[in-house]
């Protein structure tokens, strides 16, 4: 498959995977491996000093995967910037999945705070991948300040509803000059394939894999769907029509007419 390029870095996989909600770190590590993903999102939280086995991510090989820290939990630009600076200072990772979600019910991203944070972080040298509503104008504004991607949501985080914002995502894809990653809400491999067929550059999946009855198998399902969708996009879809168009010859039937 053709390579995904984000901020001049090449990736063989167009599936990004989140590490939340897995039943164990073992299942998580196996699912990440099976997905073929090379970009893996993580969150930053206080250490649970009462739990010696708190380090769930020990199972992820940090040399093999690009860890993409998110700013989940941030409700304002300032909080997101603080989290990003903390992460970079301590780990050297300057990639950030920027998410500013003040509304706990739908976890929809705040466009004003997201743009504000993106502007600050890009100036400070971060590679910013912002999670946004499917808003074509916001996408343009973010690209203008220098984000490395835009990541419109298909539907609310963890809802598994699929692509509810199709028309707006199509406009974003049409106008984007950075990779478009459809993030959030994709519940089935068919949703991921749909995003890729539309011309999205990549998708980010977490809940649909992590909470499947068999996460490792589902990771494979998404891997194949992303590849299929990308190949379909690159192949140029055949025309749709309202009426049937016979695939077999309409002559030489074995009857007398």
């Amino acid at each position: 498959m053709d390579k995904l390029i984000i901020a001049n870095k090449e990736f063989n996989s167009r599936l990004l995977i989140g590490t939340g909600k897995f039943s164990s770190s073992k299942v998580m590590a196996e699912a990440v491996e099976a997905s073929g993903a090379q970009i893996v999102t993580v969150a930053l939280r206080r250490v649970d000093i009462t739990d010696k086995n708190d380090d769930m991510l020990a199972a992820i090989d940090r040399d093999k995967y690009l860890l993409l820290p998110n700013t989940s939990g941030a409700r304002t630009a300032d909080e997101a910037v603080r989290l990003s600076r903390l992460t970079r200072a301590a780990t050297g990772i300057n990639w950030v999945k920027l998410e500013v979600t003040p509304d706990p019910y739908y976890l929809l991203p705040d466009p004003v705070e997201t743009l504000k944070a993106a502007e600050i972080l890009v100036k400070e040298g971060f590679i910013v991948l912002p999670y946004i509503n499917a808003d074509p104008i916001l996408s343009k504004r973010l690209q203008d300040v220098g984000t490395a991607t835009v990541m419109p949501l298909g539907s609310p985080i963890g809802s598994n509803q699929g692509i509810k914002a199709r028309a707006a995502i199509e406009i974003i894809i049409e106008q984007a000059n950075v990779p478009v990653v459809v993030d959030a809400g994709l519940g089935l491999p068919s949703h991921a394939a749909e995003a890729m067929e539309m011309g999205a550059d990549a998708v980010l999946i977490n809940t649909a894999i992590a909470t499947a009855a068999e996460p490792v198998k589902m990771a494979v399902g998404f891997k194949l769907a992303v590849e299929a969708g990308r190949i379909a996009y690159l192949s140029g879809a055949a025309d749709q029509s309202k009426r049937a168009s016979a695939s077999s010859p309409l002559t030489g039937f074995l009857r007398n007419e």
């Binding site: 590490t19 939340g20 897995f22 998580m28 993580v42 380090d55 769930m56 991510l57 820290p69 903390l86």
Partner: peptide, 10 residues
Amino acid sequence: IELVRFVPGG
């Protein structure tokens, strides 16, 4: 003092 680390997340 704040002690934080990476945890699983999406």
